[in-house]
Design a protein around this nucleic acid. Structure first.
Lengths: 328, 328
DNA sequence: TTGTAGGCGTTATCAG
DNA sequence: CTGATAACGCCTACAA
């Protein structure tokens, strides 16, 4: 069914139906009611594909995310999609993984769909491959990144102050009387490099010690468990561990427990993200809340504004805070 | 840029460019190469909105999900989106929540976009409101439900055998020597009613006892914690608890621990879904794996098949299995 | 207030 | 093998 079927039955032209559907003025009261009655009768709604074509805008945003199964990211995707929906935009969500080739490929697909704007969630999108693909496929459409930044005229970045956030974690542990803090890294992303920098700075400035960094070789529970067991046996005098993400820390908690040590007396643990894992573990995990929710929401607003040509700050930061629970 | 810009520069017609882009036969080798060179030069890809219009198919699926932040669902959404992507379909993912009005509204939006098919994740979509909306907005497009079923000619359901799954949980606990099992429900969905039925059947058939059901009034950690504390103080002789979902059980674990009881000696706990929460808790949670991954994957395949008019079974079930960990 | 005509960017049909 | 031409369904000048 099309507007013309409605038009025929209402004995008016297609333009009139279109006008009624879009609530435009200049339609006779009776005509409008007659048309509206038919619209209601058939539950007819205009074909958005056709509207997208003529309006040169599909009213659709693209959301790029490494993996929606990761709660940390799905929270962001949820908020951005909800916020965009409030303004009448649908969201095309793509799981790109971390490899450059597929990030670029999905940007291409989004450009073929001529989406109105793009949101990318995670610092993994702050890289040259994405930068190049954006300037190639989206030379002038707005692009917003949650926890990342690209220096382009139409790109907006909302960042977490991870470096100073982790620095405060080191400080907290120092105040708790901890003497030797070790750091466990996750995957290699700009975000994780910032966290690492915060830790290193903390060790040098606060402790005057050389940092001790362990590569987990992943960001899951198992990696956290395995790495922590290694730390416990191979490294002497460790009484605190900071993990790049909560799930690593969750594995760490179990490793410490299995070693018969007490938390936080013998060893204190800190995670990052303040995710749902943080309160499910026993003991509950102290975690740095990097405020991804605020980040995502801001990101969505910036994006929607940019799409409607209202300018805003190109780069902003959201401050993180430590949520203390039972592991410190 | 459009195909005509390419056509002009290549000194051919738009049709020829279209033919080259779609890899159709019947184009002179040299012409094809000339056009392809330009396509590459400008990184040009056809406007999918226009293609969608003329092809009467946007090559897009709609995915309805209550809340993508729930890992249980996001796993499903991920798998379905990936599988559809393999066949060239984008996915429009909507978080509908549990209320009927917004489920209907999102179905309307999807119908306005004329999506090729719909996947719904969760038994919450097995209800009259959705049934009516589907027959109204999608009288002939394929609809697949992961863990639900609607009796319509173009609807496909992939179900979990939750009832017998929970029944086996009761059996397992009986074999472990437990004498009094209590059940904690979650929200009111067809799926949760099936689980409850399995528990009730188990108690009557296996124990010859009346079931004892506690309403958690939610499906989160806090509700699990609170309800379990109440059970522990108000109900006598309970030595096993089955929870409708893992997160409730996670709260339950902590409640039992806080009461100074031992798991599983004094009290055994079982969750459902075998989610990531199940192995993050201490002790790790025994959980009924309802195979949502298999369910979703099957769902996606069924959907893609149906879209390409290849018929398949209308209703199938995936069998669940218990993953034993440390709480039984 | 209403209708006609043209165009949005493709694809498909049909001549040549 | 190639090019007009007419859809696809809608919106918007412009004209009446």
């Amino acid at each position: 069914m099309t507007i013309y079927d409605i038009a025929k039955e209402a004995e008016v032209s297609g333009s009139t139906v279109s006008r009624v559907m879009n609530g435009k003025a200049g339609v006779n009261r009776e005509t409008r009611e007659k048309v509206q009655a038919l619209l209601d009768k058939y539950h007819f709604f205009a074909n958005e594909t056709a509207r997208g074509l003529v309006n040169q805008s599909p009213r659709m945003m693209g959301i790029l995310i490494a993996d929606i199964r990761n709660t940390h990211y799905s929270d962001g995707a949820y908020l951005i999609a909800q916020e965009c929906a409030r303004y009448g935009y649908c969201s095309l969500i793509f799981n790109t993984g971390d490899d450059d080739a597929s990030k670029v490929e999905y940007l291409r697909i989004l450009s073929a769909r001529r989406v109105d704007g793009i949101a990318m969630i995670g610092s993994t999108y702050q890289c040259d491959a994405v930068r190049d693909a954006v300037s190639l496929y989206f030379p002038d459409k707005p692009v917003a990144i949650a926890n990342g930044y690209l220096d382009m005229p139409h790109a907006y970045g909302v960042l977490a102050d991870e470096e100073s956030g982790i620095f405060s974690c080191v400080k907290l542990l120092q105040e708790k009387g901890k003497r030797r803090i070790v750091y466990v890294t996750g995957t290699d992303t700009p975000s994780n490099r910032n966290k690492l920098a915060g830790y290193e700075k903390g060790m040098r400035l606060l402790y005057g010690m050389e940092p001790e960094v362990w590569q987990a070789g992943g960001a899951g529970y198992q990696e956290g468990y395995g790495t922590t067991r290694r730390i416990l046996t191979e490294s002497k005098g460790v009484d605190a561990v900071i993990y790049a993400v909560d799930l690593l820390a969750a594995g760490g908690i179990r490793a410490v427990l299995d070693s018969g040590l007490r938390i936080p007396t013998d060893i204190a643990l800190v995670g990052v993200d303040n995710s749902r894992y943080a309160y499910v573990t026993t003991p509950k995990l102290t975690s740095l809340d990097t405020k991804l929710s605020d980040l995502s929401l801001t990101c969505a607003r910036v994006l929607v504004n940019a799409v409607s040509h209202e300018d805003g700050a190109k780069r902003m930061v959201v401050f993180s805070s430590i949520v203390e629970r039972e592991t410190t």
